[in-house]
Write a protein that binds this DNA or RNA. Structure first.
Lengths: 344, 344
DNA sequence: GTGAAAGCGCTAACAT
DNA sequence: ATGTTAGCGCTTTCAC
């Protein structure tokens, strides 16, 4: 049950076709220096023997792995899947492989990052709202890194790719205003950087629209529960809002539930806007209006950056890329009902 | 920008502390044969130099990688995350590492499986409703495999771990019956094996409860849209059901939307039961009654099986493990309203 | 066009 | 307790 010995080696192939192992190696790389006939023989022998290249051996001698490590902070976040797909796609296009590891507690995170390093990945793409534990060390050693979804400052050699939360928040607010809403409250995501940016974007957009006096924030977090909590607080306040801009989609789902729990309806009584553009937001039963992040572009730019650094194009000393989000209007937002209809 | 040379080797450590590289190797493995003093010196030198073990080199010589490959068919499926967590946890507990790859189109699937083999993983856990392209070859070569979530027949040396769909379907039907429902329709998932099992389980449970005459199936699939379609068909049929058992959670969400689109309410007019127990089903805005699969147990048993085979315990020639699901009653199911109240 | 030989970083006998 | 040596599977000069 030895994991390796059962595999045939180039030596086995060589023996079978009666040539040297160097020739076999050349043939396997499709080198033009090998005669067509020999190449064919070698290839078919390899096939018959069920030969598989040994990644360890070739990495050892080639001094490179052409592999990019992908670290996932949270597999449960639905945007992770799209990001991984984009990263994988772009890496393949550029001739790199990816291996992905998934975080857990902080010890696991550290261990997984170390594993990536031991595999000698040539670059690391971290996906998540923060750097993995041990991520800093990883980056400050030889391997370049990119973090998607967070903005780490003060980590040299680390590029952060994110969407422009200020723009996204503005998009949400302006959408609501265009629908006639003025009493627009915000359910926050706590004190994380992303949450604070969205909050500031909301406040700024409100002020810019002359609605500075209507600014109203309620504590929540990035979860269903947090959204429910924040929305509940907003709607039971002295001056309940007619619209809610919630820090992310999951929390927005919680907010929708809170509206219903209070005997109100979405969107007739309260409009709700989320953030992220997760696939879930498109579910018919939810159909959430939300700000969508350009995930595909974020993923491919991460790989593009890594590859250009690996190719020695040091002409990209960027520390941050902020992409522009967009808004998808669905069924949780509707024009404000006028006072006459409301009977209020 | 060479991925490897920048890393210090045991030779560098040896030079720095003035000992031989074998001693360094031993010390790094925490061998008792090394003097405490030397060990300390070596460890601190390694630390200072930023030494990282070279996985390729040690795999090459050790003839084993202690690594299990995890193949993910669909990252978007929310149950994938829980399964991965369970697999990873169990592997770590047993001293194995995991590396995960993610499928895409069939060429990608094949490539990713090959990659796993080239890494010389000692076993493969595939997660998904079917085998990855190239999976069959992977298994029939030296590496043992387990597939979670599907039941592949006719692939030797492949264990499939799944939940017992017949039991799950029965749980759903009996729950509905206990609530007083008799007109219980099923929204199917198409012709896949899992879909057929759930359908048969539904039919059998209905018959066993003397409701054979009420059996009513409507075509859907495993998506939001498919569920909406099937539920619509069921509810607009000549004899509309008062309860729906839907093939999976996603489709159940679509079914919930269909109920609403028809001007009816969940659960007052129509009860809905899903399948899988995805986290989403717990969202307050959805709060779906569903059959939950024992994901943690499925993941850990997969690894347990692999490890026992790797340790030579050939005493487990199992081809299939079926675990028992359970039902979580939430807010999409309610007692049948009696005729008087219905006014029908 | 083909083969021989060196060596990647490491482990594991086998010496000392 | 520590050093020497061989060799894992492969790529890559360098000869022939």
């Amino acid at each position: 049950m030895d994991g390796t010995t059962a595999y045939p080696t180039i030596r086995d192939i060589a023996a079978r076709v009666g040539m040297s192992k160097s020739l076999v190696s050349l043939a396997l790389q499709d080198s033009p220096r090998v005669a067509q006939a020999s190449k064919a023989a070698i290839l078919s022998a390899a096939e018959e023997l069920g030969y598989r290249r040994n990644a360890a051996a070739r990495a050892l001698v080639a001094h490179r792995t052409r592999t990019i490590g992908v670290f996932l902070l949270d597999l449960h976040n639905p945007i992770t899947a799209d990001l991984v797909a984009a990263v994988q796609e772009e890496a393949r296009r550029r001739g790199y492989q990816t291996i992905v590891v998934v975080g857990g507690d902080s010890a696991t995170e550290r261990a997984e990052i170390v594993k990536l390093l031991e595999f000698r990945v040539e670059g690391i793409v971290a996906v998540g709202h923060r750097l993995p534990a041990g991520g800093r060390e990883a980056i400050t050693s030889t391997c370049p890194g990119v973090i998607i979804g967070s903005e780490q400052t003060g980590v040299p050699d680390l590029l952060s790719i994110s969407n422009d939360d200020a723009v996204g928040a503005r998009l949400a607010v302006e959408h609501l205003i265009s629908l006639g809403h003025t009493r627009i409250a915000h359910v926050t995501g706590g004190r994380s950087l992303v949450a604070r940016r969205r909050r500031r974007g909301y406040e700024q957009a409100m002020r810019d629209s002359g609605l500075g006096a209507e600014v109203s924030c309620h504590d929540g977090d990035f979860t269903d529960e947090g959204g429910h909590h924040g929305a509940w607080a907003a709607l039971t306040s002295g001056r309940p809002p007619t619209a809610l801009f919630v820090v992310n989609d999951f929390a927005a789902f919680g907010a929708m539930a809170a509206v219903v729990d209070l005997g109100l309806r979405v969107p007739e009584d309260v409009s709700v806007v989320g953030y992220d553009g997760t696939r879930l937001s498109g579910l018919r039963a939810l159909s959430l209006t939300t700000v969508v992040q350009p995930l595909e572009s974020m993923g491919s730019q991460a790989v593009a950056h890594l590859c250009s650094r690996l190719d020695g194009d040091d002409a990209s000393p960027k520390k941050r890329i902020r992409l522009t989000p967009s808004l998808v209007a669905r069924e949780t937002t509707a024009p404000l009902r006028t006072a006459e209809h409301e009977g209020a």
